[in-house]
Nucleic acid binder design. Structure first.
Length: 583
RNA sequence: GGGCGUGUAGCACAGCUGGAUAAUGCACCGGCCUCCUAAGCCGGGGAUCGCGGGUUCGAAUCCUGCCACGUCCGCCA
């Protein structure tokens, strides 16, 4: 509880220095009480017992006595060698009702790159984790008042797009259907969505590359290789044909993301850095490094083993024919990103860990700071890893359809008086909120197995629980408005405040701390889980503290409810939940 | 074989920059709608924190060995 620690800082400093305890030491160990029943802030006194020459219990008692009458504290108590500080709810009430200042308009610009999926097919749930995680990070930074730019790095060259472009040029629908005859039939729901339609061309081409007669295979490979080669040398007409191939696919993918509330501020094409010559310039610089090496065939690499990389240490950045590799372009991209922003954050799948390390080390070699990277583990299916190529996938579009249908059934059962349009609107909001929340609530590095049941879960610890608490606050807000309430004239804590009131005050007091921690450590799940706690606390407040009693407005309760409503609203938006006003 | 990540109740998950009785949800058992939306609230049972050693006043947390799972180890993207 930052605000409490700040209020107590002078007194603590005086008390600790009187004991002869170094400021750095006590500041390091003081923090939120692990045992919430013991208080808001705890100071374990064990670390300095020896230096002070007293038992931890004695130190704690001495401190408790000294701090006991501070206005911000309800109680300072020594217990088991800890000094436990309980915030005074009346003091909290004063500090929690005003929103904290958010004035970072001149602060550093943070560029968050996320998603950046190859535009060759629809999102499956595994790929979407990147987008959901990245977008939540963007939203939380905005909530914290930071300047943010979200960016999608478009892989518009190289083999994958090359294969797609080749397929669209050389195959027709009949051929594609014949090739994919053994596969599951395409879902007519998505017939007109280009990401679903064109991925079949891509799949058909991949099949041909593996199973066509040898001569045909060789021909296809040669044609694709020509395309790829041309794209890697910045050939404008080939790049234009690539764009014509992947553009509609990307649009389809973005349509899916937009349904999830995910949008981008900028799209940067990989080919940009080939065309403008920065990749070539970069390769020249790399060649001048003393860890630079040349393979037998003339390809170039850096020996990153000399910079502490373990395992495979050769990092290739240039082919024998002089063309660049994906990682090389990524280096140029990152260098450019530093000209755009003051902080770089990348969201990457765990399969990119080595690559990210190589890029980081190489950037350091060039005197450029490495980006901060948030890694996430893959979402598997019970049958194994998701793969578009093998047809072992759950498409995000399908998940959203199913989630919406199930949510609609739930709403119809719970609210028989709502009309169908209302049901649909609520179901859509609940569905996308739940799908997002079920992914952001777990720490990114935790791998998990997709199950329909979990992904569609609408109970206890999921989005609707938090949405519902907000809905209750909105219902009260409507009643307050109807009663003509125009803000509290006098806010005072009742003589013996209900547990629910104290609890919501504590949560509100800690809200900003959690947000900052989530943002600074790139761990959105901390904030997501905190939001559930906040909702729980609001429910307790709702239970204990009538805001309108027989038409009479309780000023203090009304003020707290309204503040909680705002915080819940902003928090829900921050994790990508749609803050419905009624549901 | 090597690098990195993960392993916590039946299931899922938090805590991991060392601190008190390991938090929460689902599932299970019991209770609450003359009262601001019961998608809610209250109560109950359930954990050798993967296994073994070590460091420490104190270890789920740090170190070390082992085991299981994931991931990477293209001059692919």
């Amino acid at each position: 509880m930052r605000i409490l620690l700040e209020a107590l800082d002078d007194d603590l400093e005086a008390a600790m220095s009187a004991l002869g305890v170094d400021a750095a030491l006590w500041r390091k160990v003081i923090g939120p009480a692990r045992e919430r029943a013991e208080g808001d802030v705890a100071l374990p006194c064990f670390p300095f017992a020896k230096a002070v020459g007293q038992s931890p219990a004695d130190i704690a008692s001495a401190l408790a006595e000294r701090l006991g009458d501070h206005p911000a504290l309800l109680e300072a108590r020594a217990s088991n060698g800890y000094l436990n500080l309980v915030a005074n709810p009346a003091w909290l009430l004063e500090h929690v009702l005003a929103p904290p200042p958010r004035n970072d308009a001149d602060g550093p610009l943070r560029l968050i790159e996320h998603t950046s999926a190859n535009p060759n097919g629809p999102f499956h749930v595994g790929r979407a984790r990147n987008a959901i995680l990245g977008d939540t990070l963007v939203r939380l930074h905005r909530l914290a008042g930071h300047r943010v730019r979200s960016e999608y790095y478009v892989d518009d060259m190289g083999k994958q797009v090359g294969v797609l472009a080749w397929a669209l040029k050389h195959l027709d629908e009949g051929r594609v259907n014949a090739l994919l005859a053994e596969r599951e039939a395409p879902d007519p729901t998505w017939e007109t969505k280009a990401d679903h339609a064109r991925v079949r061309w891509y799949q058909a081409a991949q099949l041909l590359r593996q199973e066509a007669p040898e001569e045909e295979q060789a021909l296809i490979e040669a044609e694709i290789a020509d395309l790829v080669h041309a794209s890697e040398h910045g050939d404008a007409s080939v790049l234009a044909s690539f764009e014509a191939a992947y553009g509609p696919v990307l649009d389809g993918m973005l349509e899916t993301l937009s349904r999830l509330g995910i949008t981008f501020d900028a799209f940067t094409k990989e080919s940009t850095f080939v065309v403008d010559g920065s990749v070539a310039a970069l390769m020249d610089e790399l060649e001048a490094l003393d860890i630079h090496g040349v393979a037998d065939n003339g390809a170039r690499f850096l020996d990153l083993g000399q910079r502490g990389l373990k395992g495979k240490t050769d990092f290739f950045y240039r082919r024998a024919d002089g063309s660049s590799l994906y990682a090389t372009r990524d280096l140029a991209y990152h260098r450019w990103k530093w000209t755009q922003a003051d902080q770089l954050i990348d969201v990457l799948g765990e399969d990119h860990r080595l690559q990210a390390q190589q890029v980081g080390l190489t950037l350091a070699e060039l005197g450029v700071e490495a980006p901060e990277v948030v890694f996430y583990s893959f979402i598997k299916l019970p049958e194994g890893k998701m793969s578009t190529r093998r047809g072992n996938v759950v498409f995000m579009d399908d998940l959203l359809e199913e989630a919406t249908a199930q949510a609609a059934d739930l709403v119809r059962g719970l609210r028989p008086d709502y009309d169908e349009a209302e049901v649909k609107a609520i179901a859509e909001a609940v569905a996308i909120s739940a799908v997002r929340f079920n992914i952001v609530r777990v720490s990114p590095e935790k791998g998990f197995t997709f199950t329909w049941e979990d992904a569609l879960s609408l109970d206890g610890g999921s989005a609707p629980f938090a949405m519902y608490a907000h809905t209750r606050a909105c219902a009260i807000a409507r009643r307050l408005e109807a009663a003509g309430w125009a803000g509290a004239e006098q806010v005072v804590l009742p003589r013996s405040p209900a547990p629910g009131l104290v609890e919501i005050l504590r949560l509100l007091a800690v809200h900003h701390d959690v947000l900052m921690q989530a943002v600074e450590q790139h761990r959105p799940h901390l904030f997501a889980l905190h939001l559930l706690d906040l909702a729980t606390a609001y429910n307790a407040f709702y239970r204990d503290c009538p805001v309108l009693d027989g038409g009479v407005v309780h000023d203090t309760h009304a003020a707290v409810s309204e503040r909680a409503r705002q915080v819940l609203h902003d928090g829900l938006v921050g994790v990508g939940i749609v803050p419905l006003e009624h549901m």
